[in-house]
C-alpha cells in the first residue's frame, strides 16, 4: 500500500527549488523579449527580412550545435555523480564548459564582424533586437559557466557524491535553461522570415 502511494507521488525537481524559480523568471523575461521581437517585426517585415540576411547563419548554427553538445556533456556529469564517479563528473563538466567557451569565442567573432561594420544598437530596429537579445543571452552563457566552474571547484573538494548531488543538478538545470532559450532564439532571429 505504502509502495503504491510512493509510486504515485511525483518525483522532486532536480536541484534547488529556489533556482527553479530563478529559471522561471529568466524564461519569462526571454519569452517577453521573443514576443516583443515578433510583434515589432509585424510593423517592419521588409527591414527585418533585409537585415536578417546580413547575419552569419553558419556561426549561429555552429553555436547551436555547441550548446546542445555542451548540455549533453553536462547531463552526463549528473549521471556520473549519481553513480558516485566524481572524477568522471568533473571531466564531463569541464567538457561542458569547453562547449560554453567555444560558444563565447564564436559569438566574439560574430560581434567583431558586426561592430567592425559600424553596426550599433541604434543602427536600426532589427539590429537593436539582434544585439540586445544575443548580448543578453551571451551574459547568461557567462553566468552559466561561472555556476558550472563553481560546481567543478566544489566537486574537486569532495562536496558532491551519490547521496548529495543537488548542487550538480542545480548547475546543470541552469545550463540547460541557457540552451533552451537559444533553441528558440536561433531560428527566430537568424532563420525564420
Amino acid at each position: 500500500m505504502s509502495t503504491a502511494i510512493a509510486e504515485l507521488k511525483p518525483k522532486l525537481l532536480p536541484g534547488d527549488l529556489a533556482l527553479w524559480f530563478f529559471i522561471f523568471m529568466e524564461l519569462l523575461v526571454f519569452g517577453i523579449f521573443f514576443i516583443v521581437y515578433s510583434v515589432i517585426r509585424t510593423q517592419n517585415v521588409e527591414l527585418f527580412n533585409q537585415y536578417q540576411l546580413t547575419l552569419n547563419r553558419e556561426l549561429g548554427a555552429a553555436n547551436t550545435l555547441l550548446l546542445i553538445t555542451s548540455s549533453y556533456f553536462v547531463i552526463q556529469a549528473v549521471h556520473s555523480i549519481k553513480l558516485n564517479d566524481i572524477k568522471r563528473c568533473i571531466n564531463w563538466l569541464c567538457a561542458g564548459l569547453a562547449g560554453g567557451a567555444g560558444f563565447l569565442v564564436l559569438k566574439g567573432f560574430e560581434y567583431y564582424d558586426t561592430f567592425s561594420a559600424g553596426i550599433r544598437l541604434t543602427t536600426n530596429t532589427f539590429y537593436m533586437f539582434y544585439l540586445s537579445l544575443t548580448l543578453f543571452h551571451f551574459l547568461h552563457v557567462i553566468l552559466g559557466m561561472v555556476i558550472l566552474i563553481a560546481v567543478v571547484i566544489k566537486a574537486k573538494y569532495g562536496a558532491y557524491n551519490a547521496q548529495n548531488y543537488i548542487g550538480v543538478e542545480s548547475g546543470a538545470s541552469y545550463w540547460h535553461m541557457v540552451d533552451l532559450v537559444w533553441i528558440i532564439l536561433f531560428p527566430l532571429v537568424y532563420i525564420i522570415r
Binding site: P10, K11, S71, V74, I75, D179, I183
Partner: peptide, 18 residues
C-alpha cells in the same frame, strides 16, 4: 524548436515525472 525544447525539458532537465 518545440521538439528540441521538449527534449531539453524532458531528458536534459529530467523533468519527466515531476
Amino acid at each position: 524548436s518545440v521538439i528540441k525544447g521538449s527534449f531539453i525539458i524532458r531528458d536534459f532537465m529530467e523533468l519527466n515525472g515531476v
